[in-house]
Design a protein around this nucleic acid. Structure first.
Length: 568
RNA sequence: GGCGGCUUAGCUCAGUUGGUUAGAGCAUCGGAAUCAUAAUCCGAGUGUCCGGGGUUCGAAUCCCUGAGCCGCUACCA
């Protein structure tokens, strides 16, 4: 960044699990904020790489595949295609969106493990786990039910009883059975590799302490773990669908997904480098201390990105970059309730995109990001934000200016100059310029909501200026004055375009071209956007950028969710 | 159960290191304007800042406690 310490920024979004579609909660937590931030950096001309991919291993994937009668690989490829498409249509600007089931990830994660194993950093432990003889596999706690050892309830979960709220060790459960096929389970010893996180506690603690600028929720969360003392964390498990442990006599052992998933960021970067024709280019992004690494995640991922993956990075014998920030977001509720993917209580991205454009959702979510606490998405709120803010404040301002100029000034920027500015002109320009500066400061600190609020204010300034300078009056009395006012407001739109571009890129790319800008908005467009648009420049013909939504478009969405709650 | 977090106008949300009459948008009411997506602009009201206790000259902001909600709880991804 401009502080001179870093030359480039590597941004990641949490790898979505390829067991289903993306929903609004995902977008608000890890994807939209990251994309806005990345677009901001590209716009101001920073060198940035944005990496993501789908996380494709683990038990739930194998179960879904079995249910559909296809292989896990077929399932994840199918879901990968769908997720990629949704992301693209939503405007996610990844430089690479990869898959953890690809060969490059197998190589990369196995190399990480091998490096650490060669240093003797892992611990091997043998424990008793539940095994299903009928399915010939070990089962995780969530797939186990049995009789509660405390109250005798017959439908107790693997490690807690919902009837008497007791918690216990899963091995204490009586008559354990599989929730998958009700077959009886038996305890079998199995041996796994563990990462003794405690060995890195001091370094991790010092690392977190060296970042007082991180969000409080992240720091507090980590502090809680340090106080309790970091425990050994398993990095392998018994499963057929995963990255095989690269050791002899490890048949049927694969990496625990949380060990390999973050390494997926490295794999995806390597894949990107190969596609660039420079296979070693990934090192510039991961093994160079002038690279600034930023992980965007939801609050459920803090442990893995602020503690576990950094420990792995520290442990590796080669130098890798540690995250410079982990801006974790809280969760998004829907119509006042927690999302439930199992009950279908969610808004899925592909479904949304069949009916609406990406921009209104991007705008609404950005305006309401769960940056410091859980937030709520309502369809009525979506409609109100779209109509009142995107449509009326911004869209209408843009439209009234362009149509006016096309109607009375032949579609060219009227004669205007800085020498002829009135106090009214000067004040409006100064206010918007101040907003732009504030906006930039907020975004640099990941304060997206605050940044957007500033942009909204700039829109209000534009509308007020239009009303007060009243070109629709001066047109009849003082055409020079009228042109001057329009020249001023074009400069306001130019800056508004910059402030809105990362949030509503589809609409603003159009505005950018209507304004006759020449540089690519996403390759340092900021520089040109800072310069006055001169008299005489021909402007594009406008169209309605952000149409309003009437009740008929919104009501069915509300009813669908309502029905889901009633049927619950 | 343990750890961490959250609870502010009718609605959705801001509130920086405790400091004067607690803010914004929307919704509501009154006025102005008419270039524009019946959009815009000006003005107005509204709050036991979850309950209770405490520290302080002073607390939405710090401490304790109760309630509700959220995440994690170490092979759930």
């Amino acid at each position: 960044m401009s502080d001179g310490k870093f030359k480039r920024t590597l941004v990641t979004s949490a790898l979505p699990y390829a067991n289903g579609e993306i929903h609004l909660g995902h977008l608000a937590g890890a994807y939209l904020p990251a994309d806005i931030y990345v677009r901001y950096l590209r716009m101001i001309g920073e060198e940035v790489l944005y990496i993501c991919g789908s996380d494709e291993y683990g038990v739930p994937i194998t179960l879904t595949a079995e249910k559909l009668g296809i292989t896990p690989k077929e399932l994840v490829d199918r879901n990968y295609a769908s997720i990629s498409k949704s992301f693209q249509d939503f405007g996610m600007s990844f430089d690479n969106f990869s898959q953890t089931s690809r060969e490059i990830h197998t190589e990369t994660s196995q190399a990480f493990f091998a490096d650490m194993h060669a240093q003797g950093l892992f611990k091997q432990k043998t424990t008793d786990q539940f095994y299903s003889p009928s399915q010939e596999r070990f089962l995780a706690d969530r797939y186990i039910e049995g009789t509660c050892p405390v109250c005798g309830d017959e439908n107790a979960r693997g490690d807690e009883c919902e009837n008497c709220t007791a918690t216990y060790n899963p091995t204490e459960l009586l008559n354990p059975r599989s929730v998958l096929d009700n077959s009886a389970l038996e305890l079998r010893p199995t041996t796994h590799w563990f990462l003794p996180m405690g060995d890195w506690q001091d370094k991790l603690s010092a690392f977190i302490d060296s970042h007082p600028e991180w969000k409080d929720n992240v720091k507090q969360y980590c502090r809680g773990y340090f106080d309790a003392g970091l425990q050994d964390r398993a990095v392998t498990r018994d499963l057929a669908w995963g990255v095989p442990v690269p050791l002899d006599d490890h048949e049927g052992k694969v990496f625990y997904v949380w060990f390999d998933a973050p390494i997926g960021y490295v794999s995806a970067t390597r894949e990107w480098a190969q596609a660039q024709g420079d296979a070693e280019a990934w090192r510039t992004w991961w093994q160079n201390d002038e690279t600034r690494l930023i992980h965007f995640i939801g609050k459920d991922n803090i442990f893995f990105h602020a503690m576990m993956f950094p420990a792995v990075i520290m442990a590796h014998s080669e130098d890798y970059v540690l995250p410079d920030n982990v801006p974790a977001n809280e969760f998004l509720n829907l119509e006042g309730q927690k999302l439930s993917t199992s009950k279908g209580f969610a808004v899925w991205l592909p479904e949304y995109l069949e009916k609406f454009e990406a921009d209104p959702l991007r705008y609404t979510l950005a305006r309401n990001l769960p940056e410091t606490r859980d937030m709520n998405f309502t369809w009525e709120g979506f409609q109100a934000r779209n109509n009142n803010e995107l449509g009326n404040n911004f869209g209408n301002l843009i439209n009234r200016v362009f149509t006016f100029i096309h109607k009375y000034f032949d579609g060219q920027v009227p004669e205007w100059s800085e020498e002829n500015l009135t106090d009214l002109d000067r004040d409006a320009l100064a206010e918007v310029a101040a907003d732009l500066e504030k906006w930039s400061g907020h975004l640099a600190k990941f304060e997206i909501k605050a940044a957007l609020e500033t942009a909204f204010h700039a829109g209000q300034v534009g509308n007020r200026y239009f009303d007060e300078s009243a070109p629709f009056k001066s047109r009849k009395t003082d055409l020079e004055r009228c042109g001057q006012s329009l020249g001023v407001i074009i400069q306001i739109l130019r800056q508004l375009c910059l402030m809105l571009a990362p949030v509503v890129p589809f609409g603003m790319e159009k505005l950018w071209s209507w304004l006759g800008m020449e540089t690519d908005l996403w390759q340092g467009g900021w520089a040109e956007g800072q310069q006055n648009i001169p008299t005489g420049r021909p402007l594009g013909k406008p169209e309605i950028l952000f149409p309003r939504f009437d009740d008929e478009m919104i009501q069915p969405e509300i009813e669908r969710l309502q029905g889901m709650v009633d049927g619950d």
